[in-house]
Lab assay of single mutants.
Amino acid sequence: MTVLPKDIPGDSLKVTVGTANGKPGDTVTVPVTFADVAKMKNVGTCNFYLGYDASLLEVVSVDAGPIVKNAAVNFSSSASNGTISFLFLDNTITDELITADGVFANIKFKLKSVTAKTTTPVTFKDGGAFGDGTMSKIASVTKTNGSVTIDP
Rank of each mutant, 00 (worst) to 15 (best):
V3P: 11
V62M: 11
I8A: 08
I98A: 04
P66T: 14
D63F: 07
S77T: 12
P9G: 14
G10F: 10
D132G: 03
I138W: 04
G10H: 12
F86H: 02
F48Y: 13
A54H: 11
V28P: 10
K137D: 00
T29M: 14
K23I: 09
Y52I: 08
F86W: 01
I98L: 05
G131E: 00
P5Y: 11
A64K: 06
A35T: 08
L89K: 01
T115E: 06
T19M: 09
L89W: 03
D126V: 15
N42P: 04
S76T: 02
D26E: 09
N74Q: 00
F88K: 00
S136D: 01
S55E: 11
V28F: 09
G10I: 12
A71M: 09
I67C: 12
M1K: 14
T83N: 15
Y49T: 01
F34D: 06
L50R: 01
G51W: 08
T123R: 14
V30W: 12
L111E: 01
A20G: 09
T27K: 09
F109K: 00
L56R: 10
K125Y: 07
D53H: 10
L56W: 08
K110C: 04
T118L: 04
D11Y: 12
K112R: 05
I67A: 14
D90H: 02
G131Y: 00
D95R: 01
G51A: 10
A20R: 11
G10S: 11
D7T: 12
I67W: 04
T94E: 01
T99G: 07
G25Y: 12
V32M: 07
P152G: 15
G22V: 13
V148H: 00
E58N: 08
V17M: 06
T94A: 04
D90M: 03
V141N: 05
V114W: 10
I67P: 13
A105T: 13
L89D: 00
K108S: 06
V32K: 03
A72P: 13
N81G: 15
T19R: 13
T92G: 03
V103D: 06
D36E: 12
D7H: 13
I84P: 00
T149V: 15
V114E: 05
A72E: 11
D11H: 13
T134A: 05
A100S: 09
V62Q: 07
G51D: 14
K6G: 06
D95H: 03
N81L: 15
I84F: 05
L87Y: 01
T123E: 03
D63Q: 10
D36W: 14
G102P: 02
K117W: 01
V114S: 07
D7Q: 12
D151A: 15
F130H: 00
E96Q: 14
V141K: 02
L97C: 03
V148W: 02
K125T: 02
K39N: 13
N74A: 03
P66R: 12
V28D: 07
G44F: 02
N106E: 03
V62K: 10
A71V: 12
K117A: 03
T149M: 15
T118H: 06
S113C: 05
V59Y: 10
T27P: 10
Y49M: 01
V62C: 08
V114F: 05
D90R: 02
F104A: 04
L13V: 14
T83E: 05
F75G: 02
C46Y: 06
A64M: 04
M40S: 10
S80K: 15
L97G: 04
A71N: 12
K69E: 10
S55T: 12
N42M: 09
L13S: 07
D90A: 03
N21M: 10
V3T: 09
T99W: 05
F88L: 05
K108L: 04
K41L: 13
A100Y: 06
G44M: 14
G22K: 10
K110N: 04
D90F: 02
A71Q: 09
G82Q: 15
K110D: 00
V60M: 09
G25D: 11
K125N: 02
D126G: 15
P24W: 14
K117Q: 05
K117H: 03
S12P: 11
T149N: 14
L111M: 06
L111A: 04
D36S: 11
V73N: 06
K108I: 04
P24G: 09
N47I: 02
V30Q: 14
V43E: 02
Y52H: 12
S80A: 06
D90K: 02
V60D: 12
T144N: 05
N145A: 05
N145M: 02
S136K: 03
T115R: 06
T45Y: 00
V148P: 01
N70K: 09
A38L: 13
F48D: 04
K112W: 01
A38Y: 11
D126N: 15
I84K: 02
P9I: 07
S113D: 07
T142F: 04
T92N: 02
L87T: 00
N145T: 05
T33A: 14
S61N: 09
K112I: 04
F75R: 02
T119I: 11
A100Q: 05
A20P: 12
A105K: 01
A64V: 07
V141C: 00
V122A: 05
V17F: 14
D126M: 15
M135L: 03
I8Q: 10
E96S: 03
A20K: 07
V73R: 03
T115Y: 03
D95G: 03
F75V: 03
L111H: 04
G146Y: 06
L4Q: 11
S61R: 10
T144D: 02
S78Y: 15
G127D: 04
A64T: 08
L97Y: 00
A38V: 13
T33P: 12
P66M: 14
S85L: 00
V28M: 09
V37I: 12
V148N: 06
V30P: 02
V43W: 02
K69C: 15
L50H: 10
F109G: 00
T118N: 06
T83D: 07
T149D: 15
F104K: 03
G51Q: 11
L97R: 03
L89S: 01
G82E: 15
D11W: 09
K69Q: 10
S76H: 06
L13G: 04
Y49P: 00
G131A: 02
T118V: 04
A72C: 13
A35K: 13
D126Y: 15
S85K: 01
K39S: 11
G18R: 10
V3G: 12
V73H: 03
T149A: 14
T45A: 06
L87V: 01
V59D: 07
T45R: 00
L111G: 02
T134V: 05
N91R: 02
M40P: 11
G25S: 09
F124K: 07
S12G: 12
V3C: 13
D53V: 12
T115F: 07
F75P: 01
A54Q: 12
P9Q: 08
T27V: 10
P66W: 15
N21G: 08
V73I: 14
D132F: 02
T118S: 09
S12N: 14
D126Q: 15
T16Y: 07
T99F: 08
V28G: 09
I84C: 14
V37Q: 14
